[in-house]
Design a protein around this nucleic acid. Structure first.
Length: 431
RNA sequence: GUGCCUAUAGCUCAAUGGUAGAGCCCCGCUCUGUGGAAGCGGUUACACGGGUUCGAUUCCCGUUAGGCACCCCA
């Protein structure tokens, strides 16, 4: 665990994905690709570093995010850069930069990769983490796209065998109706000022919508009778939300309306949603709701970037969270396909011949394992066993001299000797 | 950024104010001609820095990292 030299630690909040857990990540990436293909999302990769300005403008007033939670760096030339904290703004940037509004709308893209936030690590939160996301940009401001984004994310979670997934949906309105609601919410909270926690008193000034997801006991009580956004949606937003729900209904999505789902940033409007899964606690009794990701509509982002208004909706999932759930649920994922055939060589002549034999196998499309660095037959058989080989090929001095080789069935121990020049064909027949 | 808890071998854990031991794993040997078993042997640790002390892995302080929670959560 600990090495003397401090340089032998991974930096705070980062972690290695070791060979033994790669199979989970391979599986996750594979399902992302498959779902994307199924629903016609094309892959997009954007750089890991971007200009700080991009994300600064994207998040707007939420100063805490810019000052506290972005992983910023300054180049030798003095440029202010940031390790990308999220995917949406970078994709919007690429959309604008490359004129992707001219390639047929809407643009449906997906991404998957590392993101960075300068936070204190805790359960499911790292400084370098991975997200996968689906975005639909441009075209019409149609609620069907909101649901298509939900659907892609849902299908991804399902394909990974996660259980009891639910989508908590809400609408946070638009520039017309949200300010009216905010006022209403604030005047309600002002009347309850004495009954809410310190943080909520501060939130009333900083970020009123966040009042709705305070977990303080006192605040929970106050929240229960707070006014909710969907009662105050304007006619257009109301119609949009209604259609979203109708499509979700048609697809039988496991959704529920949750008026307490909000987003922290200004560019979101109308539909917002989060994905949850139920998992059992370690004691195996109490079940616990775990957030896996979320998203929403962000029709205002392009205006913030000084472009003409462009409808867009997207969502992202936290892959570390998903990997942890897969591990904790012991969801069965096949590990790497191991080679079925193992070559054992005894003596220097056999070792030489063995090396070219391996290449002959490779050429005919059969991968075989070996441990030719070991000398004794026993050690090599042990290695073959550990590898899970079905057949062992044993090539000793005698066999090299006679141009033959032994095929050993690892399960039964039955052996036969055949001519070396026939072995590739014979193994091909058997595996 | 804040608070609480933690830090002994690759992993899971012991013991101790006089510098550490087990199980598992790994490696080697028995075994350059037959693995799964067994036996024998071996590698590897007191996170870092300072203080108290004759002496600190042990007590104290700081740092770093990890865990949990808060803030925040795009």
């Amino acid at each position: 665990m600990a090495k003397k030299n401090i340089n032998f630690y991974s930096v705070k909040g980062t972690h290695d994905i070791l060979p033994s857990e790669q199979y989970i990540w391979e599986k996750i990436r594979k399902e992302i690709r498959d779902v994307a293909e199924t629903y016609s999302f094309s892959r997009i990769d954007t750089p890991i570093i971007e200009n700080l300005d991009l994300f600064q403008r994207g998040v707007g007033e939420a100063t805490d995010i810019v000052e506290k939670q972005m992983f910023t760096l300054t180049t030798k030339g003095g440029d202010k850069l940031v390790l990308r904290p999220e995917g949406t703004s970078a994709i919007a940037r690429a959309y604008i930069q490359h004129g992707l509004s001219h390639v047929g709308q809407p643009l449906k893209v997906y991404y998957e990769g590392p993101f960075f936030r300068y936070e204190n690590p805790q359960a499911g939160r790292y400084r370098q983490f991975h997200q996968a996301g689906f975005e639909i940009i441009g075209g019409e401001n149609d609620p069907i796209y909101d649901v298509q984004v939900m659907l892609a994310n849902l299908r991804l979670l399902e394909s990974l065998k996660l259980k009891n997934i639910s989508i908590h949906v809400n609408s946070i309105g638009c520039k017309t109706c949200r300010p009216i609601y905010k006022k209403k919410l604030l005047s309600y909270y002002k009347s309850k000022k004495k009954e809410i926690c310190k943080d909520c008193n501060r939130r009333m000034n900083d970020n009123p919508l966040r009042l709705l997801d305070c977990k303080d006991e006192k605040c929970e009580v106050v929240k229960k009778s707070a006014p909710i956004m969907i009662d105050d949606l304007c006619a257009t937003c109301r119609r949009h939300f209604k259609e979203v729900l109708e499509y979700a209904e048609e697809l039988k999505l496991p959704y529920q309306i949750n008026p307490f789902v909000v987003r922290g940033l200004d560019y979101y409007n109308r539909t917002v949603f989060e994905f949850f899964t139920e998992i059992n606690n370690a004691e195996g009794e109490k079940s616990l709701s775990l957030a896996l990701g979320g998203g929403g509509r962000y029709d205002y982002l392009f205006e913030i970037f000084g472009q003409r208004s462009t409808p867009a909706v997207g969502a992202a999932l936290g892959l570390e969270r998903i990997a942890e759930v897969i591990k904790s649920l012991k969801i069965n994922i096949p590990v790497r396909q191991k080679n079925k055939v193992f070559l054992i060589v005894i003596g220097i002549e056999a070792k030489k011949r063995g090396m070219s034999l391996v290449e002959e196998f490779v050429k005919s499309g059969i991968n075989i394992s070996e441990s030719m660095g070991k000398n004794s037959l026993g050690a090599q058989l042990k290695a073959a066993d550990k590898e899970g080989a079905v057949l062992a090929l044993i090539l000793g001095q005698k066999e090299v001299f006679k141009e033959s080789i032994i095929i050993r069935d690892m399960k039964t121990g039955v052996q036969e000797t055949i001519l070396l020049k026939k072995v590739v064909a014979e193994i091909k027949r058997r595996v």
